[in-house]
Simulated scan of single mutants.
Amino acid sequence: MPNPAATAAPTLEVRGLRTHFHTRAGVLPAVDGVSFTLERGRILGLVGESGSGKSVTGFSIMGLVDPPGRIAAGEIRFQGRDLVAMPAPELRRLQGNRIAMIFQDPMMTLNPVMRVEAQMIEAVRAHSGASKAQARELARDTLGLMGIPSPEERLRAYPHQLSGGMRQRVAIAIALLHRPDLIIADEPTTALDVTIQAQILSEVQRLVRQHGTSLIWITHDLSVVAGLADDVAVMYAGRIVEHGPVDAVLDQPLHPYTAGLIGSLPSLNRERRRLRQIPGMTPDLLALPPGCAFAARCPRASAACARQPELEAAGPAAAQGALRQVRCFHAGQPAATELA
Results as ranks from 00 to 15, higher is better:
residue 197 Q to H: 09
residue 197 Q to E: 09
residue 197 Q to V: 06
residue 197 Q to S: 12
residue 198 A to S: 13
residue 198 A to D: 02
residue 198 A to H: 03
residue 198 A to R: 11
residue 199 Q to I: 00
residue 199 Q to M: 09
residue 199 Q to W: 06
residue 200 I to L: 10
residue 200 I to N: 03
residue 200 I to M: 09
residue 200 I to G: 08
residue 200 I to R: 05
residue 200 I to C: 11
residue 201 L to P: 08
residue 201 L to R: 11
residue 201 L to G: 14
residue 201 L to D: 03
residue 202 S to N: 12
residue 202 S to W: 02
residue 202 S to D: 08
residue 202 S to Q: 12
residue 203 E to L: 14
residue 203 E to H: 10
residue 204 V to F: 10
residue 204 V to N: 03
residue 204 V to D: 03
residue 204 V to Q: 03
residue 205 Q to R: 15
residue 205 Q to W: 13
residue 205 Q to H: 15
residue 205 Q to S: 15
residue 206 R to H: 11
residue 206 R to G: 11
residue 206 R to N: 06
residue 207 L to H: 06
residue 207 L to S: 07
residue 208 V to E: 01
residue 208 V to Y: 04
residue 209 R to S: 13
residue 209 R to M: 10
residue 209 R to F: 12
residue 209 R to G: 10
residue 210 Q to T: 14
residue 210 Q to N: 12
residue 211 H to V: 04
residue 211 H to F: 14
residue 211 H to D: 07
residue 211 H to M: 09
residue 211 H to A: 13
residue 211 H to K: 08
residue 212 G to F: 10
residue 212 G to L: 10
residue 212 G to D: 02
residue 213 T to G: 08
residue 213 T to D: 02
residue 213 T to L: 10
residue 213 T to C: 09
residue 213 T to M: 12
residue 213 T to K: 02
residue 213 T to H: 07
residue 214 S to D: 09
residue 214 S to T: 12
residue 214 S to M: 14
residue 215 L to C: 13
residue 215 L to S: 14
residue 216 I to S: 06
residue 217 W to Y: 15
residue 217 W to I: 14
residue 217 W to H: 15
residue 218 I to M: 12
residue 218 I to C: 11
residue 218 I to N: 09
residue 218 I to T: 12
residue 219 T to F: 05
residue 219 T to Y: 00
residue 220 H to D: 02
residue 220 H to M: 09
residue 220 H to Y: 02
residue 220 H to S: 06
residue 220 H to K: 06
residue 221 D to Q: 09
residue 221 D to T: 09
residue 221 D to R: 11
residue 221 D to A: 12
residue 221 D to W: 03
residue 222 L to C: 11
residue 222 L to E: 02
residue 222 L to I: 02
residue 223 S to K: 00
residue 223 S to M: 07
residue 224 V to G: 05
residue 224 V to I: 13
residue 224 V to K: 02
residue 224 V to P: 01
residue 225 V to H: 03
residue 225 V to Q: 05
residue 226 A to R: 13
residue 226 A to T: 06
residue 226 A to V: 07
residue 226 A to L: 04
residue 227 G to F: 01
residue 227 G to V: 01
residue 227 G to Q: 00
residue 227 G to P: 00
residue 227 G to S: 07
residue 228 L to F: 15
residue 229 A to Y: 05
residue 229 A to N: 13
residue 229 A to K: 07
residue 229 A to P: 11
residue 229 A to Q: 07
residue 229 A to W: 05
residue 230 D to V: 08
residue 230 D to K: 03
residue 230 D to W: 01
residue 230 D to H: 05
residue 231 D to F: 08
residue 231 D to K: 01
residue 231 D to L: 09
residue 231 D to I: 02
residue 231 D to M: 04
residue 231 D to C: 07
residue 231 D to W: 06
residue 232 V to C: 14
residue 232 V to E: 07
residue 232 V to F: 13
residue 232 V to G: 14
residue 232 V to M: 11
residue 232 V to P: 12
residue 233 A to C: 03
residue 233 A to F: 00
residue 233 A to N: 00
residue 233 A to M: 00
residue 233 A to Q: 01
residue 233 A to Y: 02
